[in-house]
Amino acid sequence: MTMTTSAIEVKAKKTSLLKIRMKKMRSNKLATIGLLVCIGMTLLSVFAPFITSYDPAQMNLSNITQAPSAEHIFGTDKLGRDVFAQVLYGGRVSIYVGVLSALGGTIIGVLAGAIAGYFGGKIDSILLRFSEIFMTFPQLILVLVLVSLLGQGVNNLIIVFVITGWMTTFRLVRNEFLTVREETYVSVCRSFGIPTSSIIFKHMLPNTMSPIIVAFTVNVAGFILAEAGLSFLGLGVPVTTPTWGNIMNAAQSIDVVTNYWWLWLAPGIAISLFVLAINFLGDGLRDILDPKQ
């Protein structure tokens, strides 16, 4: 009985906290704009077929490197493909890679962190060592070796990013759990015989959500940039798949940079804008979710 009432209370408290945070969020203009830009760009990519009638793969060799016009608002590339369509469709893959990798890393990090933090002892030290090895591993070499092992592909790249990107979240969750573990409500739950999984996920995890969310946004931004960087080194997604990184990489030659500005400006701005928006959002969330403020 007491349990249910307290649960309701917690819920009521939560909604009011949520309200406060929403209010804070609205007052933090940059974060709001960041959020809107992220959502807007994601929607544009998802609904690309409704926004442009061009197929990003459709070549037109009689219409190459056309400057922006009413017909092609971002111009056409060296194969006569519509750059606007490419940027829209490219966003799909880039955002997909960024979000899914961050999600995968977060899930692994949270699970491992929760287990390590809740149980402590041997499991904790094993997982900790494991994460230390991964952190000590020069990330770049790990990525390079994994990419050359798994081969190029969108999903392989996500696997690589997940493998190399779970440690921050792990450490975060573990440390939070180590402190939360000692609090009264956890021992109360335990003495009520509530299953461990329920204690971890229903009671302890929600209390550590804020830093996880912030870490998640930072990771999305990081992975999108990492994809672009790997594309630059020729190790990212297969070159024929349009991603912001690939489109931009295709446009890095001096001749393109000076003569066909529309080929790199659009994807360059798309990628910078999206990452900027996510970073503003993350910064805002840090302020909003920080209980100290």
Partner: peptide, 26 residues
């Protein structure tokens, strides 16, 4: 200053590099 710093981590570094080569070197 905070936003300049965020901008700094949001632009792909190779892109930034290519641009400043264009401006200051070429």
């Amino acid at each position: 200053s905070r936003n300049v710093a965020v901008l700094g981590i949001s632009i792909p570094e190779f892109f930034f590099g290519i641009i400043i080569i264009q401006i200051f070197a070429i």
